Computed example of a mutant assay.
Amino acid sequence: MKKIFFTLVAMSAILVACEGKPSAATKTTEAEDSTVLVLFDGETFNGWRGYNKDHVPGKWTIEDGAIKINGGGAGEAQSAEGGDIIFDRKFKNFELELEWKVAKGSNSGIFYLAQEIEGKPIYISAPEYQILDNENHPDAKLGVNGNRQSASLYDMVAAVPQNSKPFGEWNTTKILVYKGTVVHYQNGEPVVEYHLWTPQWKELLDKSKFSAEKWPDAYELLINCGGENHEGYIGLQDHGDDVWFRNIKVKILD
């Protein structure tokens, strides 16, 4: 993971040097930092709605300070009261942090830079941070070299090391998106790094289920992920399984 380490060091230097950004000596606390947005207050769905909907579908509830998707099988995800949810604001350069846990055998995901397209699923326009019970879900053995396991860039880049916790235990996630560089963290470790809008990104798409040959609609959207302004929605996936999310916040980096 040397490449990730050196990239993060360089990016940290850039961020500290940026005009208007506080130095290490003057940095405010998180509570005082206006660039940190709490996306879930632990009690309400304020700011959230269903993808291509004006309300939060009924399969989503709040339980013990966490957002929960109550799974009823993959078919339920397509029902009127199922489906993915998004936070109703687009983000460009940011750090997303949250915690999640899954029931036994559960599958979900976190989408970012997503576009909202009528009649199309969210995952054809957005990279996906995979959420999975690696030990008990068949997807863990699909894909290539583990690229459908927890914290992976779904079907493209495997998370290394694979350090997810067993079902029923809370995991921490951070997703850094900064001027095309994306880093996935899981339980405090950087596990994936890739670079949007580059030859590397095109190569990843070409080798995935979203290639121009296999899924042209998805390829057209993902090759220029985030659209003209390189920004999009953050979304949580309903894959028909029980999954919990809490302590969701975003730090704006631009």
Score class of each variant (00 low, 15 high):
A10I: 02
L15Q: 13
T26S: 14
T29F: 04
E30H: 05
S34E: 15
V38L: 08
F40A: 10
D41T: 07
G42Y: 14
N46Y: 14
G47Q: 08
W48F: 08
W48D: 06
Y51M: 03
G58E: 15
I62L: 13
I62G: 11
E63H: 14
E63C: 07
G65F: 15
A66R: 06
I69T: 11
G73P: 04
G73D: 00
Q78K: 13
S79Y: 10
G82I: 07
G83N: 06
K90T: 10
K90Q: 15
F91S: 05
N93I: 12
L96A: 04
K104T: 12
G105H: 10
N107I: 07
N107F: 13
S108C: 08
S108R: 07
L113M: 02
L113R: 03
E118H: 12
I122F: 07
S125K: 09
P127R: 12
E128K: 08
E135W: 11
H137G: 09
K141V: 06
N145C: 01
G146Q: 05
N147M: 11
R148G: 05
Q149H: 02
Y154S: 03
A159N: 02
P161K: 02
S164N: 10
K165C: 09
P166M: 12
W170K: 06
W170R: 04
T173H: 04
I175A: 09
K179D: 14
T181G: 00
E189P: 00
P190K: 11
V192N: 09
L196S: 02
W197R: 13
K202W: 09
L204A: 10
L204I: 15
K207Y: 08
E213T: 15
K214F: 13
Y219L: 05
L222W: 03
E228S: 01
H230P: 04
Y233K: 06
G235V: 08
D242Q: 10
V243C: 01
V243D: 00
W244P: 07
F245K: 08
R246L: 05
N247A: 08
I248T: 05
I248H: 03
L253S: 09
